[in-house]
């Protein structure tokens, strides 16, 4: 018994150590710009010559080339972000039946002389366009049952599996 307690203590200390090691890089909880909520940074482009092109709604060649080199889809057009100076939204073409052919994908910010390129997290679209795309006002419901509906089918199957397992293991004198 004492040995078990000692092992538990060591495990707790190990986990605390791991947490202390990792905690430094965990995004702050509740940070509205955290990657999981808003956008994840991809790279920073040197030189501000792109800004004038961006202002004329043209995607600068080097930026687009760098994105494609990294395996991301090529931006189809850029647009000024509403109400924010020095920030643009990059759009990509997507193939979704019955929906707009373009979707907000990149976020380009001016930072001094550099351009910081990040990518919007998928939740941004859920938050901004969920109601018009699914006609359901509850974000939890359309996230759960539509955008990630297949996961929910899996979760329902998990519950079904649990029920059938209990029948397999416990039920006696049954036809099943």
């Amino acid at each position: 018994m004492r040995g078990l307690r000692l092992i538990t203590l060591i495990l707790i200390i190990l986990l605390c150590g791991l947490f202390a090691y990792v905690a430094e890089d965990i995004p702050v909880f509740g940070d509205p710009d955290a990657p999981a909520i808003k956008s994840v940074e991809l790279f920073t482009m040197k030189g501000a010559e792109g800004v004038s092109l961006l202002n004329r709604q043209i995607v600068p060649g080097p930026l687009s080339g760098e994105l494609v080199r990294r395996g991301f889809p090529r931006p189809s057009r850029v647009e000024k972000a509403a109400g924010r100076e020095g920030e643009w939204n990059g759009f990509i073409k997507k193939e979704e039946p019955r929906y707009a052919a373009e979707e907000k994908y990149y976020r380009i910010e001016r930072e001094g002389d550099d351009l910081r390129v990040s990518r919007y997290a998928f939740v941004v679209r859920w938050m901004e366009k969920g109601l018009e795309e699914t006609a359901v006002p509850n974000m939890v419901t359309y996230g759960l049952a539509d955008y990630r509906g297949y996961d929910t089918l899996g979760e329902t199957t998990v519950i079904f599996t649990a029920g059938v397992s209990v029948i397999l293991l416990l039920r006696r004198r049954s036809r099943l």
Binding site: Y21, V22, P35, A36, G71, R119
Partner: peptide, 23 residues
């Protein structure tokens, strides 16, 4: 929590700049 994505292909694109990240 660091990439905001769950798709495998997408993660493989987003992770390279974060390879040194402790998380």
């Amino acid at each position: 929590s660091v990439t905001g994505s769950l798709n495998i292909h997408d993660l493989s694109l987003l992770l390279p700049p974060l390879y040194g990240n402790r998380v």
